[in-house]
């Protein structure tokens, strides 16, 4: 198993507050890696470290053998994309314009819109089913449509690695599944995905590599079928539960016991 994206002994901190100490994680190439864990376990912070949004105070994040944080920003942006948790769609921007902004790292002062840009944007909109929305204003779209447009922007960037920060938050169940299926398609087509997710059952169903975190450290990682156990869920979330096999996908399904069922 090769891992062109990996963190070696990284410490991530906001000011003096250490969130993660000496953590190492190798993201298997072509995997759909999903990081789970309770609130404040450091999973989003870890993703920020991978996304160049937070520079490790010690250790390095390597991408293709080079220190990610010392690459030129545009060069890094051609290799590694991010779907941030919250982005701002400028007033009056159309879907095509927003998706087109994903091409920024491939452009320069003289080449602001090449045939490659055109093709990448058309394909990104096609893959996300947003082609029909192309000339619509982003402000006018529903939450589900808008998130698809942001995904299209990240796809137009054409990176081998794509990081997803809680991509399904604020969406209803149908749109969540819709989006997870889209990510699964991307994974099948060869993109390495790293996502932070809250929904354990979605994580178990879609991940090829599952990482469970608590208190800034990795508790377990591997195939979801091996990782998700009643003991692990209790150890990570302090949540008593039953784990059964999902009759639809054959992956583990977590059923919280709650107080009443004890």
């Amino acid at each position: 198993m090769t891992a062109s994206l990996n963190a070696r002994d990284i410490t991530l901190a906001y000011g003096d507050t250490r969130i993660i100490s000496n953590l190492s994680l190798a993201v298997p190439d072509k995997s759909f890696t999903i990081i789970i864990g309770p609130n404040a376990c450091g999973k989003s912070t870890l993703l920020r470290g991978f996304a160049r949004l937070l520079r490790p105070s010690t250790g390095t994040v390597l991408l293709d053998g080079a220190d990610l944080h010392s690459l030129k920003p545009k060069e890094a942006a051609r290799k590694l994309g991010l779907l941030p948790q919250s982005s701002i769609a400028p007033d009056g921007i159309t879907v095509a314009d927003l998706v087109g902004r994903g091409r920024f790292p491939h452009q320069n002062a003289l080449r602001t819109w090449s045939r490659d840009d055109e093709r990448a944007v058309a394909e990104a909109m096609d893959a996300t089913g947003t082609t029909e929305l192309s000339s619509r204003l982003v402000d006018e779209l529903s939450g589900g449509q808008r998130q698809r447009v942001w995904v299209a922007m990240a796809l137009a960037q054409r990176t081998g690695h794509l990081l997803l920060d809680e991509p399904t938050t604020f969406l209803d169940i149908a749109h969540q599944i819709d989006l997870m299926e889209l990510f699964a398609d991307l994974h099948r087509e060869g993109t390495t995905l790293v996502a932070v997710l809250h929904d354990l059952n979605h994580a178990a169903r879609y991940a090829t590599h599952l990482v469970a975190m608590r208190d800034g450290a990795i508790v377990a990682q591997g195939d979801p079928r091996d990782v998700i156990t009643e003991q692990l869920v209790e150890a990570v979330y302090d949540l008593p539960c039953r784990v059964i096999t999902d009759p639809v996908s054959g992956t583990p399904l977590v059923l919280p016991l709650g107080r009443r069922a004890k």
């Binding site: 160049r52 949004l53 701002i88 920024f104 790292p105």
Partner: peptide
């Protein structure tokens, strides 16, 4: 200031999105 013509509109999308697209 000419480069700002391309970088500022990207920065309008927020620092995280702009960083991901290769802007400091």
């Amino acid at each position: 200031s000419l480069p700002l013509n391309r970088t500022l509109p990207v920065l309008e999308m927020g620092d995280d999105a702009a960083t991901a697209l290769g802007i400091s």
